[in-house]
């Protein structure tokens, strides 16, 4: 049923600086599904997540992306966020001088303003912050720190999942979230993602390795290679890739 479709990518070709990286990607994601996109380095995984989140440096040359029935490519990065897309960055960016509290308050109230709502009341906001911080086991002092400045790899990724919990997206895209994480941080991040997943939502887990997929179990697994999806199967594909690598595709 079409109303079950959260994301529909058709014949997507895209690249950066005149170089084509995605060479015709098709992908349909329905409510409740977790999709893993696996692939070797240089396959186009980061390009796909960048195009989905609207990174300005990337150019789409043909194809279409519909998100909840709307033309995603016509939307700015902030409009995509308001519509319910969230990307957890592989390399979260440092924003010196901006506290996590101020950053999140601005983000939440920008969305509320776009929806024609009043800014969130201070008490309500602080309660929400507190709740979501404990969700990813962040100490209260965390809220005063400058966004990602001096954070360890694990803190950066927990901060991503904290922001995801605050924004409560319909589609979460986790771009190489496992890179630079020790096992404890990986568990916290994965259990956060799993707890946020409901039958109304969907997630895309982009990863080179199977490690994260032991904790976030996908319904569908795709292999992306040379800018195309070359294989789609169930979760059993993860073990096959682990054993044989990407050379068979």
């Amino acid at each position: 049923m079409s109303q079950d479709i959260i994301l529909k990518i058709n014949g997507l070709r895209a690249g950066i600086e005149g170089k084509e990286i995605l060479k015709g990607v098709d992908l349909t994601i329905r409510k409740g599904e977790i999709h893993a996109i696996m692939g070797p380095n240089g396959a186009g995984k980061s390009t796909l997540s960048s195009v989905l989140s609207g990174k300005p440096q990337y150019t789409v040359t043909s194809g279409s992306i519909e998100f909840m029935g709307k033309d995603l490519l016509a939307m700015s990065p902030e409009e995509r966020s308001w519509a319910g897309i969230f990307m957890s960055f592989q390399y979260p960016v440092e924003i010196p001088g901006v506290s996590i509290t101020n950053f999140m308050k601005t983000a939440i109230n920008s969305r509320r303003e776009a929806m024609g709502l009043e800014p969130m009341k201070a008490a309500e906001f602080l309660k929400l912050m507190k709740e979501k911080m404990s969700f990813v086991q962040m100490k209260p002092e965390f809220s005063k720190r400058e966004v990602n400045v001096g954070f360890s790899g694990g803190e950066k990724k927990r901060n991503e999942i904290f922001q995801m919990a605050m924004l409560d997206p319909t589609l979460a895209i986790l771009d190489e979230t496992d890179s630079g994480l020790d096992v404890d941080a990986l568990r916290i991040v994965a259990s956060g993602v799993n707890a946020l997943h409901t039958p109304d939502k969907a997630a895309i887990v982009i990863t080179h390795y199977q490690r994260l997929l032991e904790y976030i179990v996908p319904d569908v697994v795709h292999v992306l290679k040379d800018g195309k999806i070359v294989k789609t199967a169930g979760r059993e594909l993860v073990a096959q890739i682990e054993e044989n690598g990407y050379d068979n595709y």
Partner: peptide, 28 residues
């Protein structure tokens, strides 16, 4: 910094607000 702007926009902060936040943190 444009990477920081994109990061903020991906969280729903408008480009204009992102720039204001950057400038304010610069002078703070």
């Amino acid at each position: 910094d444009e990477d920081a702007q994109f990061y903020m926009r991906s969280r729903g902060i408008t480009l204009q607000q992102a720039k204001a936040l950057q400038m304010l943190s610069f002078v703070s």
